[in-house]
Deep mutational scan, measured.
Amino acid sequence: MKMAVISEHLGLSWAELARELQFSVEDINRIRVENPNSLLEQSVALLNLWVIREGQNANMENLYTALQSIDRGEIVNMLE
């Protein structure tokens, strides 16, 4: 549920979040190519990849820290 809210509000910031979460330029470009027409779909794809990559370590605290690092703390505030 929280992931959906984050995806809805990320907009163009999804790529900046991807870099903050240590995704490569290739990963970011692949997300763009696979989801060409929708920032929402790109955001969802990023968060899904992050959960798959991090497994047990994919917790909201880590995601909140990354969001705050890219000056998107207002998204965190909405969810708390």
Rank of each mutant, 00 (worst) to 15 (best):
A4I: 15
A4D: 15
S38M: 06
A15W: 07
S7W: 03
A18F: 01
N59P: 08
I6T: 14
L49Q: 13
V44M: 15
L46A: 07
I75C: 02
S69F: 06
Q56C: 09
E80D: 15
T65K: 12
I75D: 04
M78W: 09
L40Q: 13
E41F: 07
D27R: 05
S69V: 14
R30L: 08
I70Q: 01
Q56H: 08
E74I: 11
S13K: 10
A15S: 14
E20N: 11
E61V: 04
L63T: 04
D27P: 01
N59C: 08
G73W: 07
R72T: 02
R72P: 08
N48V: 05
V5P: 04
I28G: 01
L39I: 05
L49M: 14
M3G: 04
L49A: 10
V76L: 12
G73V: 09
A58F: 08
L39S: 09
L49H: 08
E20P: 00
M78N: 13
Q42I: 00
M60E: 05
V76T: 08
I31Y: 05
N37E: 13
T65G: 12
Q68C: 08
Q68K: 15
A15P: 13
L10P: 02
A15R: 10
S69L: 09
D71F: 03
A66I: 04
G73T: 07
L46D: 00
P36R: 09
N59E: 15
A18M: 01
E54H: 07
S7G: 09
I28C: 09
A58R: 12
N35Q: 08
N37V: 07
E20V: 09
Q22D: 08
L79T: 09
L17G: 00
N77M: 10
G55D: 11
L63W: 03
I75L: 09
R53A: 04
L21E: 00
L47P: 03
L39Y: 13
E54Y: 06
L47K: 01
A4K: 15
A66V: 02
E20H: 10
G11W: 01
L46E: 00
E54T: 05
E8L: 06
R32G: 08
I75T: 06
R72W: 01
E34P: 00
N35G: 01
E34A: 04
L21G: 00
V76W: 06
A66F: 00
Q68M: 09
Q22R: 11
S43N: 11
A4Y: 05
I70Y: 10
M60K: 04
E41P: 04
R53N: 06
N59A: 12
L39A: 11
E16Y: 06
H9N: 13
N57V: 12
L46Q: 00
G55T: 10
L49N: 07
S38W: 02
N57T: 10
E41T: 09
V25I: 10
V5N: 03
S38V: 06
Q22I: 07
G11N: 09
N77Q: 15
R72D: 03
W50A: 01
W14P: 02
D27W: 01
L39E: 15
I31T: 02
D71T: 06
P36G: 07
L79R: 04
E80T: 06
V25C: 09
Q68V: 11
A66M: 06
A4S: 07
V44R: 15
M78A: 13
S69K: 12
G73E: 08
L40I: 14
N29A: 12
S43R: 01
V25F: 11
V33C: 15
L63C: 02
S24T: 09
N48D: 15
D27E: 11
A58T: 09
D71W: 01
R19A: 12
E61P: 03
L79S: 13
E34G: 09
L79D: 04
M3N: 02
E41L: 08
N35W: 08
N59L: 09
G73N: 06
R32I: 10
E16M: 08
S13I: 01
E74S: 07
Q42N: 01
K2R: 12
E74R: 03
L67Q: 02
A58D: 09
G55W: 00
S24M: 05
D71K: 12
N35Y: 05
N77W: 13
R72S: 04
E80V: 10
F23E: 00
I28P: 04
I70C: 06
V5S: 06
I31S: 00
E26T: 14
N37T: 11
E8S: 09
V25Y: 15
N57L: 11
A58N: 15
A66R: 02
A15K: 08
L12M: 08
E16T: 08
G73Q: 10
E8V: 04
N59T: 06
V25Q: 13
